[in-house]
Amino acid sequence: MTTDNDNLRTRIQQAIQSQKRPTITVLSSLLAIQDSIGHIPEIAIEEVAVHSNTSINSVFGVASFYPNFRFTPPGEHSVEVCWGPTCHLKGATEILESVLEKLGLDSEGDTDDGKVSFRFNTCLGACSQAPVISVNHELYGNASPDIVPNLLVSLYEKENLHQ
């Protein structure tokens, strides 16, 4: 357990120290950790506080403010559905219904098997192709509920191929 924790601490420190942008802040360090580990473990809050010479409270204040941070490990795959006004007009509701049903969720969160993390996205930036779904950060525009099963099934299939 200690070695696991030490290992995690090392990865966190590496993430903080290998930032390339010239200005390092609490926020930039948290983003770097999330990019590298996928979430913000409790010891990451401590590490960022030490590195930025600030309190644990103020680091957690930043981490809890931005909804893109999560505090538990994410699923292996990420699925995001845009619910911005354009996507809403173009049928995001039906897509959300279909995604939630297929994943067995009733709102944002992780599937029971830990494979998929689902999030709402306020705007994926491709409104001209609305409605838009993002699967593992690849965008699928002009989406319809029909493509949802295939998109999600392909995640699981890829998984099987790896095994």
């Binding site: 942008r21 200005t23 926020l27 930039s28 983003l31 909804p67 306020t122």
Partner: peptide, 9 residues
């Protein structure tokens, strides 16, 4: 330089 923000309108 580029600075990043978290998700916040």
């Amino acid at each position: 330089e580029v600075a990043l923000t978290g998700e916040s309108y």
